[in-house]
Design a protein around this nucleic acid. Sequence first.
DNA 1: TCAGACCCTCACAG
DNA 2: ACTGTGAGGGTCT
Length: 291
Amino acid sequence: MNSTQKIFSVIDYNLDATLTSGQAFRWKRHGNGWVGIIGNRWVQLQSKGTELLAQCAEPVADWDWLTHYLQLDLDLREVVATFPSDLAMRSAVNACQGLRLLRQDPWECLASFILSSTKQIVQIQQIVSLLCEKFGQPVAVPEGFPGARSFPTPERLALASEIELRNCKMGFRAPYLLASARMIAEGRLNLQQLHSLSADEARARLLELPGVGPKIADCVLLFAYGFQTAFPVDVWVMKALRQLYFPRRRPSRLKLQGFTQNYFGRNAGYAQQYLFHYMRTRRENGTVKTN
DNA sequence: TCAGACCCTCACAG
DNA sequence: ACTGTGAGGGTCT
């Protein structure tokens, strides 16, 4: 039966933490819940205990897209059980039970992270919001809600000028986003095809894009393609790693990569998300308990 | 490996 | 109120 809303039963799903943890940049708080756009759909989400209420603007026949985006079928306990059990890791997990990884659209994720370099999360949200406002397609919205737009396609952005993009306050990231959009629009890189590659191969392809370095490539592998071994190292995670595991000398990037893969295991990327969130939200901002 | 440049905005001093 | 300053989920050269 088609309905505009559905109730999912969930265990250990911290919606607030998940939507504010810097993976996705378009969710806005609305009352107790959240409003966002997934693909071409407007969605409102509310979490109540073990229930997750989803509301759309138009009737939905099949909710698989939302189950997939939110990764509702994932057994989080099984994932957390694979983390190393040092104190910092345990503290990070305890500080934020139910933090999840989303499974986003590759292009939206890629473009958003190209825009993320040396920006704070609120600033990224602002840029992405302007970008959607200017280049996105209108989507259906329920009565009484402000209009909303989808994330612009690479084809649309490929037609934009650098000036237009800079007007979205993205500064020096504009030529990167434009060039990447063009490469994808021209078919020089097929984002869907990366699903069929290994993590290393997919990573190599992403690194061909201008404005995409190791950190952003890993974010896309993790947040869009679900390669859970991908381990984005940003300033926060680097701070944690150095304090915790390399107190003496700083390791080379290659060494660090080897270490994170071995030490954090097959869900290294998930572990990274907990460390990131922990570092970012702790009161003493930047210190981690080591014993 | 190692800086420095790169846009722009906001928070925070003074 | 105003101006000055610094730094912010990096990447490129």
